[in-house]
Design a protein around this nucleic acid. Structure first.
Length: 462
RNA sequence: GCUCCCUUCGUCUAGUGGCCUAGGACAUCGCCCUCUCACGGCGGCGACAGGGGUUCGAGUCCCCUAGGGAGCGCCA
């Protein structure tokens, strides 16, 4: 049997961290078993679904490299399938028309709540032999079994047993004829031959209803795996404050897709003590049985650590493209500066995001350096102007512009004036960058270039 | 209210009855390295929610309590 998993987001909001993790788990499971990963857009809520959300979901999946083999399917384009199945169910008396008014339902609900009962439909129209004389359009309800239990063998939660007495006859078609969620999911998972339904555990309670419908349809029941939700860093429900923002925001903020994926795969899943997983390793090692059934809190610091890990270990040429993207966002012209890959190498161990790297690399690309008042006051003293002047001259005469030769010159000046290295390196750094922080001085000078370096020193000492 | 799920350091987790005086990672603190910031190295602080069982032995199995969360929609 070929493994088939799916990711079925509803485009009523953006693709956030929680959704991405579920998608990742589904994708990994399919890839690991050489199966198929299907993307399905659950857009039946016409009121709240938006085109932008669909675009953002697709873009997010693409950015992360979570490629699908089939789809994207749109539920709004599958209404004829749902209608056909509803008609079949009604014809077989496995579903029925319900004419109850919303008022009646609301009263019923209030009464049940008052009696401290779980609010459920009472089956009023289930045994109606003749339709009532009413002008209101009916809904269609599924005839849920009234006795017995449904056993869900969840791959993450374990065996969960639901008593059919706790369930009621849910609406599968609204009065306007449109199908409802619990029904479309079932029809789609069935028709798309999904073998493993991996989704958020907020759906665990829906599972027995869906299994009952599947059984009524004579369909094979898929395996289920309910993943716990992601909490905010404060242990509360994830909100916009923590990361319930579009996954594309992470791209804009300078995160690498491999870092986000690595972070998310370890949130709720583990393989012994291993923290770093390449895409290939994730695929090979991932298993649903090792997924934690408890919710996990989102920890931005660890994501940052992983991001820097991938910045430090990634291919500079590839990271350079990410840096270029960030520079563009920040309006930094990179044309006239040093090769971006070399900037990446120089800055990798002092940037946690590519955005941060771009921000801290402005001085490599601009003619007009912004000088920090504090740094200038502290390091560009009058006593240092003579050594800096000599240094500029020596640098100007260098025939070989390399970090090693630059370093030799800096050391020579330090020796000549009997200065500790820091006493000349820091003033030089401020002259070059406007700040007291940068990569090793010889690398900084090297990357800024001979002409610019000499010019910057002379500018600050005149 | 009812049903279901969850509970190991601040956080992510290892742990599948003896290897646990509970291991790793992030964060944090200290030291070292050092031209700055970092990176790196070394070390410190720090947890089995509580209570009952079962067992020779429980973080690990069972029950209860407490605390979190989800569902109970003509939303998905």
């Amino acid at each position: 049997m070929t493994i088939r998993t799916r990711f079925a987001p509803s485009p009523t909001g953006y693709l956030h961290i929680g959704g991405v993790r579920t998608a990742l788990f589904s994708w990994l499971y399919a890839r690991k078993h050489g199966g198929q990963f299907i993307l399905r857009i659950e857009d039946t809520d016409l009121e709240r679904s938006t085109e932008e959300a669909v675009t953002a979901i697709l873009a997010g999946m693409k950015w992360l490299g979570l490629n699908h083999d089939e789809g994207p399917f749109y539920q709004t384009q599958r209404f004829d399938h749902y209608h056909a199945v509803i008609a079949q169910l009604v014809a077989e008396s496995k579903a029925y028309y319900c004419y109850c008014s919303k008022e009646r339902l609301e009263n019923l609900r209030q009464e049940q709540l008052a009696r401290k009962e779980k609010p459920r439909y009472d089956g009023h129209c289930r045994h109606l032999s003749v339709p009532p004389t009413t002008t209101a359009a009916p809904v269609v309800r599924f005839k849920n079994p009234e006795v017995g239990e449904v056993v869900v063998k969840d791959l993450i939660k374990g065996t969960v047993i639901f008593n059919n007495r706790e369930l009621d006859d849910l609406i599968i078609a609204r009065s306007d004829g449109s199908p409802t969620y619990n029904f479309t999911v079932v029809v789609d998972d069935w028709e798309m031959q999904i073998t493993h339904v991996i989704r958020g555990d907020d759906h665990l309670n829906n599972t027995p209803r869906q299994i009952n419908i599947l059984r009524a349809l004579g369909a094979t029941v898929p395996q289920y795996a309910h993943v716990a939700m992601i909490l905010g860093s404060d242990g509360q429900k994830l909100s916009k404050r923590h990361g319930a923002v579009s996954v594309l925001n992470y791209q804009e903020e300078g995160y690498l897709p491999e870092a986000l994926l690595n972070y998310l795969v370890r949130l709720g899943w583990s393989h012994h003590d291993q923290e770093i997983f390449s895409r290939q390793e994730m695929i090979e090692l991932f298993e649903l049985e090792a997924v934690n059934s408890a919710p996990a809190a989102f920890n931005p610091e660890k994501l940052l650590w992983l991001n820097q890990h991938y910045i430090k270990t990634g291919e500079p040429a590839r990271l350079a493209e990410h840096l270029r993207f960030q520079c563009e966002l920040l309006g930094i012209e990179t044309q006239a500066g040093p090769p971006l890959a070399e900037v990446v190498t120089a800055q990798a161990e002092r940037a946690k995001t590519l955005r941060e790297m771009a921000q801290n690399s402005r001085y490599f690309f601009t003619e007009k350096v912004q000088y920090e008042e504090k740094a200038v006051q502290k390091h560009l003293t009058t006593e240092i102007k003579k050594p800096l002047s000599d240094l500029a001259n020596r640098l100007e005469q260098l025939t070989e512009w390399q970090p090693t030769s630059i370093q030799a010159v800096v050391h020579a000046i330090a020796d000549q004036y009997q200065l500790k290295l820091g006493k000349i390196a820091q003033p030089l750094r401020v002259a070059m960058t406007g700040t007291a922080v940068s990569p090793p001085i010889e690398v900084t000078v090297y990357l800024i270039g001979q002409q610019r370096s000499v010019a910057r020193i002379r500018q600050v000492i005149t």
